[in-house]
Design a protein around this nucleic acid. Structure first.
Lengths: 331, 331
DNA sequence: TTGTAAGCGTTATCAC
DNA sequence: GTGATAACGCTTACAA
């Protein structure tokens, strides 16, 4: 029933015109109190649900925001999405989500598919895209936020952190602690932010005279079992490794569990460090050394920026939410 | 530019009617090869992006699916959502997601907001809803899938597992292992599935003559730090506890780490058990005893069912994907 | 195979 | 304060 009733039905039932009903629905002031109440009653009676397809078509503007992220299983991104969703909800905006699996072609295809819905704004991940994606985004004439990375020029706006700076900070920290034989685990070519960190980390170490053992063993996502198995492999390849850095905390957690199992004392026999600053890292007997990022806040800020721009409030084009080096006892 | 070009523009540029362009765009057969190619060229040239607002309005049917879940931070639901998203993508359907924070009023409000977009289908979590939500869903005249729980009558379809049966299986298993003094951690009143499990677990234990210590200490989500801290509290309250069951694996993981830290040997000094069967549970030195659920599959199946119904293929109204008792070495 | 005309359910605009 | 009317961009139904 309710799906089929329209403004016209309400108008007839209430004995007014469609426009009056429309005004009431949208909370437009120019309706007398009496008619407004009458209309509101009939709306509830017949269970009218506005059709935003028609509304947005006429109004040339929707309250949907396209959100494109690489993964939902990686909880970094589900946390970012949680932040986005929470903020959008407050303003009665709905996120339409797409998952790229770290694939830029898929990102492009998703974007094209989603643009058909004329979203009010687009939130995408990272600053790297196909040419076509960039061109679409540039011509979209809606706010565009690129999240996670702020090291580069955004198409429109960006919110995130500098992954290379973060990786360098970690490298410096570990060097200052006296570690000398470094291992790295979890590098995925198609995770651009992680690749950026890896590159910066290695280069910083090289600049300071240290090498890095980094077996390219994964196509799989760097989760806890992968971290555990990877640590085993890396230590077989380079048994004298001082400290292993993982591309994220979850993998590092796997490394920590491996060490526990093999009676490798952290950080005395060997040290580990992660990336993300997930809460679980602080549950280890030796709290994890890691780079904490502000995932929820990145999502919230991105969404807030979108909403601000849409309501004409000026915003900063580039927002670096930074990171925090957590000097745990695991390194 | 591209956002503003319409069928009419393409039609004029290609020297055909709007309808012909429309047919080409939708892959309608009834267009000659020559004109089809010409139209396709001009579409690419001027960068036309169809407007699905208009299309769906005319066609009275959209390719968006409303997905309402309690949380994105709890990775059980991000995994479910990942399954949904992956399947929908294949058919060029987009999920519009809403997060309820385990709040039924919010679920209702979100649903109302989303129904305005005339989604092709709705996927909601659990079988418990407000009366208004149920009424909206019943009258929606679109496929509705309730996910996670199949113990009850669905509004339309449901996909998930029987939480009480799962909890009973775990209780029986632990009893058969000889445990006698049970603890339970992580019960949240507003997480209906978890509450169902807790209730079934306790009742089963009672039926077999055992009690249960279950401090209601959380309003916070049962994550790893909460599991760790909760274990501490519970053991202070009931130091002789044989085995602690957690409302999910993440919390149980926290418990395991607590035990490691306190040199409580698992499962000799005490045992633990989780729920979900996350991969991380198997990274412990003593693989976790838990109930494995099929989260990705639940999402996939829900989405596939939606797509099947939409294309007229008959489906089962209730799909119990079951669970698997993982008899780890932690219990 | 292609084109014309009438909606789809709103909102913007301009009368009254 | 309220109401006609013309968009919005597309698809259905029918005509050529």
């Amino acid at each position: 029933m309710s799906a089929r009733t329209t403004l016209k039905d309400v108008a007839q039932a209430a004995g007014v015109s469609q426009m009056t009903v429309s005004r009431v629905v949208r909370g437009d002031q120019a309706v007398s109190l009496r008619t407004r109440e009458r209309v509101q009653q009939t709306i509830e009676q017949i269970g009218y649900v506005p059709n935003k397809l028609a509304g947005s078509l006429a109004h040339a503007r929707s309250n949907q925001v396209a959100v494109i992220i690489p993964s939902l299983v990686n909880n970094v991104f589900s946390q970012v999405l949680a932040g986005i969703t929470a903020e959008l909800e407050k303003a009665d905006y709905n996120p339409v989500v797409g998952v790229t699996d770290y694939n830029l072609e898929k990102e492009e295809a998703l974007l094209i598919s989603m643009m058909s819905w004329r979203p009010a704004a687009v939130i995408v991940t990272n600053l790297i895209h196909t040419d076509r994606t960039i061109s679409i985004l540039r011509n979209a004439s809606v706010p565009v936020v690129e999240i996670m990375d702020v090291d580069g020029a955004p198409i429109d706006m960006c919110v995130g952190l500098k992954h290379d700076t973060a990786a360098q900070a970690l490298a410096d920290h570990l060097v200052s602690k006296g570690y000398q034989r470094f291992g790295y685990l979890g590098w995925q070519t198609n995770d651009y932010a992680a690749a950026k960190r890896f590159k910066a980390f290695r280069e910083r170490l090289e600049a300071r005279g240290y090498g890095l053992v980094a077996p390219e063993i994964y196509n799989a996502p760097p989760d806890m079992p992968a971290g555990k198995a990877g640590t085993d492999l890396l230590l077989k390849e380079a048994p004298l490794t001082d400290v292993i850095v993982y591309s994220n905390d979850t993998a590092a957690m796997g490394g920590a569990l491996f060490c526990q199992e093999k009676n490798i004392a952290l950080p005395d026999d060997m040290a580990i460090a992660g990336f993300s600053g997930l809460r679980m890292g602080q549950c280890l007997p030796q709290p994890m050394t890691t780079i904490r990022t502000f995932r929820l806040e990145i999502g919230q800020t991105a969404a807030r920026n979108v909403l601000k721009v849409l309501s004409g409030v000026p915003v900063m084009r580039k927002i670096d939410l930074g990171f925090e080096l957590i000097d745990g006892q695991s390194a």
